[in-house]
Design a protein around this nucleic acid. Structure first.
Lengths: 165, 165
DNA sequence: CGCAGGTATCTCGACATCAAGATATCTCGG
DNA sequence: CCGAGATATCTTGATGTCGAGATACCTGCG
């Protein structure tokens, strides 16, 4: 089946036959797919009254395990946003009663963000919902293809995740 | 090489052993890679004095071929943004002299957005720069792996691109 | 021909994000 | 123990995006 990127690449080959646009076959698809995923996620989370950014923060805390707390700095590296954004997110989640800020006992500059019971429940429910939706999207691929795809993507992401940048 | 998603999946398996989080192996990597790509693209375009969103619009017009013009509606579907956003983008690109708005001779509701000569040159230069950067990122993979990856991604994107949504 | 519904674009207000800088605190060499 | 530089978080101002609604125009049925 043809997709938008096939049309995009064909157009470039026609307009700029002098260029090798092969990289777009992979990377434009990654960008476009991510865009579509964002929309699908937004829909999935709406069923649980959460925004995507709320999910990102709550699940980062949930994954940390008891007592479900992390510093804003740790949340930054997991969510790939800037510190100003994270401050704002924590403020709003605090306002909704899903997390609370505690002083870090070992560092007076620091803060610990902890999930409330309500926040934990919401995160658990939304995760289950998300996985159900994502499984549908992936039904296009066999289990073997999914594994293969994951491995190829890992090779591309690893440099970003391991060399600080 | 391990990446952030490996750690994420391991954390979920520890915290929620009852859930099958396999879908994250693919889709979380797509989202995270897209995020990293956005940053890399921003850097690449800065060398040519362009923002990513400017590049998206200018190259859509460039790909259309002579006379390098499309309606705002056509630009919407290619760039996956809303109409309010596109109006705003066209305004700003017009202000920078990279595109201009012309009335559609066949539909008085309509408008045609056309690339200026300067806009065309900027698009061409930025594209060449982008491809160079992207080729480096893809050096992680053999040519065969790139083809394979592109094919797998196509299967996932195609439903979005072909079933209107 | 006239009107109902559809379509193309723009307007407007709310909001999330970012970048850069401010503030408070920590760390460690001297 | 002091001060320089690093670190953690928050503040601020600008900006881009979205969503819903407004406006103008087109199309086709009756």
């Amino acid at each position: 089946m043809e997709d938008e990127v096939d049309r995009l690449v064909a157009a470039w080959r026609r307009e700029r036959p002098d260029l090798d646009v092969e990289p777009l076959e992979v990377l434009s698809r990654v960008s476009r797919l991510a865009r579509h995923l964002d929309r699908a996620r937004r829909t999935a989370f709406a069923e649980h009254g959460l925004e995507p950014w709320e999910f990102d923060v709550l699940t980062a805390l949930r994954r940390a395990g008891t007592p479900y707390q992390l510093s804003p700095g740790q949340l930054l590296t997991q969510t790939l946003v800037t510190s100003g954004t994270m401050t704002n997110r924590i403020d709003r989640l605090t306002g909704k009663g899903l997390v609370k800020r505690l002083p870090d006992p070992d560092d007076r500059r620091g803060v610990l963000v902890r999930l409330t019971d309500d926040g934990r429940d919401r995160a658990d429910q939304a995760l289950a919902g998300l996985l159900a939706h994502e499984r549908e999207l992936l039904a296009q691929l066999t289990s073997g293809q999914q594994t293969e795809l994951a491995a190829l993507l890992r090779q591309l992401v690893a440099p970003f995740d391991n060399i600080p940048g």
